[in-house]
Amino acid sequence: MPAGIEVSIEERKRLKGKVRPWMRWWLGREWAEVRRSVRSACVEAGPERDTLVQSLKAAGAAIAAWAVSGWWFQAPMALLAPWTAIAMVGSTVYHSVRTGVQQFAIIALGTVWASAAMAFTHDQTMVAMLFTLPFMMLLGNYRRFGSQGIYGATTALFVITGGVSSTSTVGHRLLETLIGAVIGLLINAFVLPPVHLRSVRDRLVRLVRETADVLGAMAEGLREEDAVERSASWHLWAGGLTVSLQNVGEARRWAMEGSRWNPGGRLRRTGPKPPPFVEDSRWGRVCTRVLALTRTLKTISGDTELTPPSPDFLRLLSDVLSQAGRICAIETELLSGSGSGELRERRDAAFGEAWSSLSSLTDAFHDQEPSASAVGGELLLEARQLMTELAPSA
Results as ranks from 00 to 15, higher is better:
residue 312 D to S: 12
residue 190 F to G: 01
residue 198 R to T: 01
residue 246 Q to K: 13
residue 64 A to P: 00
residue 216 G to R: 04
residue 115 S to P: 08
residue 170 V to D: 08
residue 129 M to N: 06
residue 308 P to R: 14
residue 232 A to M: 09
residue 114 A to K: 00
residue 376 G to H: 06
residue 348 D to A: 15
residue 230 R to E: 08
residue 144 R to M: 04
residue 195 V to Y: 10
residue 21 P to T: 02
residue 318 S to E: 05
residue 375 V to Q: 05
residue 266 R to K: 11
residue 220 E to Y: 09
residue 32 A to K: 14
residue 121 T to H: 09
residue 50 D to L: 09
residue 185 L to R: 04
residue 37 S to A: 15
residue 131 F to M: 14
residue 35 R to T: 10
residue 259 S to F: 10
residue 359 S to E: 12
residue 128 A to T: 11
residue 21 P to E: 04
residue 351 F to A: 01
residue 123 D to Y: 08
residue 362 T to K: 15
residue 383 A to R: 10
residue 254 W to Q: 09
residue 140 G to V: 00
residue 367 D to Q: 15
residue 181 A to T: 09
residue 340 S to D: 14
residue 373 S to N: 08
residue 354 A to T: 07
residue 253 R to G: 07
residue 116 A to M: 13
residue 268 R to I: 07
residue 155 T to F: 05
residue 235 H to G: 02
residue 39 R to L: 14
residue 339 G to M: 12
residue 84 T to R: 04
residue 85 A to C: 05
residue 1 M to D: 10
residue 45 A to H: 08
residue 252 R to L: 11
residue 64 A to Y: 07
residue 71 W to P: 00
residue 372 A to Q: 02
residue 154 T to V: 14
residue 202 D to G: 08
residue 86 I to G: 01
residue 172 H to A: 13
residue 236 L to N: 11
residue 206 R to F: 07
residue 248 V to N: 01
residue 324 A to Y: 01
residue 234 W to R: 03
residue 372 A to F: 07
residue 242 T to E: 09
residue 72 W to E: 06
residue 238 A to I: 03
residue 118 M to W: 06
residue 380 L to D: 08
residue 192 L to T: 03
residue 386 L to K: 04
residue 384 R to C: 13
residue 222 L to R: 01
residue 391 A to C: 06
residue 83 W to E: 03
residue 393 S to T: 15
residue 101 V to P: 08
residue 347 R to H: 13
residue 1 M to L: 03
residue 253 R to Y: 09
residue 230 R to P: 05
residue 381 L to Y: 13
residue 348 D to W: 12
residue 302 G to R: 14
residue 262 N to Q: 05
residue 179 I to R: 02
residue 113 W to K: 01
residue 98 R to F: 04
residue 317 L to D: 05
residue 183 I to S: 00
residue 283 W to S: 06
residue 41 A to L: 03
residue 337 G to K: 12
residue 7 V to C: 03
residue 389 E to S: 06
